[in-house]
C-alpha cells in the first residue's frame, strides 16, 4: 500500500491498527498487520483458512496477547485495558452459557455490558429469534446459535463489533436476512468488522475489505481499489469481482 493511500485512510479512520504481530512458538501467525477501520462501515476481513483472521481479532480485542502492534484513535494510542471500550469481539464456534435461555443471554449482555436495551426487540425481530427466546443456548442448531450470538453482539455498546464468521452455519435465506440486518445497523452508525472466508458472502455485505493471507495484509480497500491494485501488480487485465481480486493479490 502506498504512503498517500495510508494518509487518506488515517484521515477518515475511526481506528488505525499498526504492526500487529503474533507468533505461536516458531510459527508467525500475524506479521506486521496494519490497516484502518472507518466509522459506520462494514469492513470485511477476507482470507483462507489459517490466514490468521481469528488470531487478528483476538489480538485486537486483547483476548489473546499480541507480540507487538498498536491501535490508535485520532492519533492517540488506545491502551490494551481501554480497548474493551471501543471493540467487542464475537468469537466463532462457541456455546456460552449452554443451559441458559436465549432470552436470558440477551438480557445478560445488555445488563452486563450496559448495552442499548432499546435495541433488544428490534434485534430479536430482525434476526428472527422470537421462537428461540426460551430455548437453552446449548440446544440450538449451529445456525440458530449463530443468530443468537450475533444478536448478543449487536446488543453490546462498543462502537466497533468484530464478528468472526457471522454467516457460518446459516443457509442462503438466513445469510441474506442477517446480511441485511447487519447493513441496517451499520447504516445507523455501528461499525462492523466481519471475518469471512466465503468471498461471495463478503461481497454481499461489506463496504471495504482487508485481505489477509499467511498472516500478512495483502490489500485493503473497496473492490474497485483492490481491483486496481491487482491489475497494477500483474500489469494485465483488471480482475473481475472480489474472488478474482483475492486470487490475484494472495
Amino acid at each position: 500500500m502506498t504512503k498517500s493511500s495510508n494518509t487518506s485512510n488515517n484521515a477518515a479512520a475511526l481506528l488505525r491498527i499498526e504492526g500487529i504481530t503474533k507468533t505461536f512458538g516458531h510459527t508467525r501467525a500475524l506479521s506486521d498487520v496494519s490497516f484502518s477501520i472507518r466509522p459506520g462501515e462494514v469492513l470485511g476481513l477476507i482470507g483462507p483458512n489459517g490466514a490468521g483472521k481469528t488470531t487478528l481479532f483476538e489480538c485486537l480485542t486483547g483476548v489473546l496477547p499480541a507480540d507487538s502492534g498498536t491501535i490508535s484513535r485520532s492519533e492517540k494510542l488506545i491502551p490494551l485495558r481501554d480497548r474493551s471500550s471501543f471493540l467487542f469481539y464475537l468469537p466463532d464456534g462457541i456455546t456460552p452459557w449452554p443451559a441458559q435461555s436465549v432470552r436470558w443471554m440477551l438480557d445478560f449482555i445488555v445488563g452486563f455490558f450496559g448495552g442499548p436495551a432499546s435495541l433488544r426487540d428490534d434485534v430479536i425481530q430482525r434476526l428472527d429469534l422470537r421462537p428461540l427466546l426460551n430455548s437453552p443456548i446449548g440446544t440450538l442448531s449451529k445456525g440458530q446459535r449463530k443468530r443468537a450470538l450475533l444478536a448478543a453482539g449487536l446488543l453490546t455498546p462498543q462502537p466497533v463489533l468484530l464478528a468472526d464468521e457471522p454467516f457460518d452455519g446459516l443457509d442462503l435465506r438466513q445469510t441474506r436476512e442477517v446480511a441485511q440486518a447487519l447493513r441496517t445497523y451499520a447504516a445507523s452508525g455501528r461499525t462492523l468488522f466481519l471475518s469471512i472466508h466465503q468471498i461471495t458472502d463478503a461481497a454481499r455485505v461489506c463496504d471495504r475489505f482487508v485481505l489477509l493471507s499467511g498472516g500478512r495484509v495483502r490489500g485493503e480497500g473497496t473492490v474497485g481499489e483492490l481491483s486496481a491494485a491487482a491489475s497494477s501488480k500483474h500489469t494485465g487485465e483488471s480482475p473481475n469481482g472480489l474472488e478474482e481480486v483475492f486470487l490475484a493479490l494472495t
Binding site: 483476548v63 485495558r81 464475537l90 462457541i94
Partner: peptide, 15 residues
C-alpha cells in the same frame, strides 16, 4: 465452565 464454553472470551471484554 466459562473457558470450556467460550463464555470467558465474551465476559473478559467487559472491562
Amino acid at each position: 465452565g466459562d473457558r470450556q464454553s467460550g463464555a470467558l472470551k465474551i465476559e473478559s471484554q467487559q472491562g
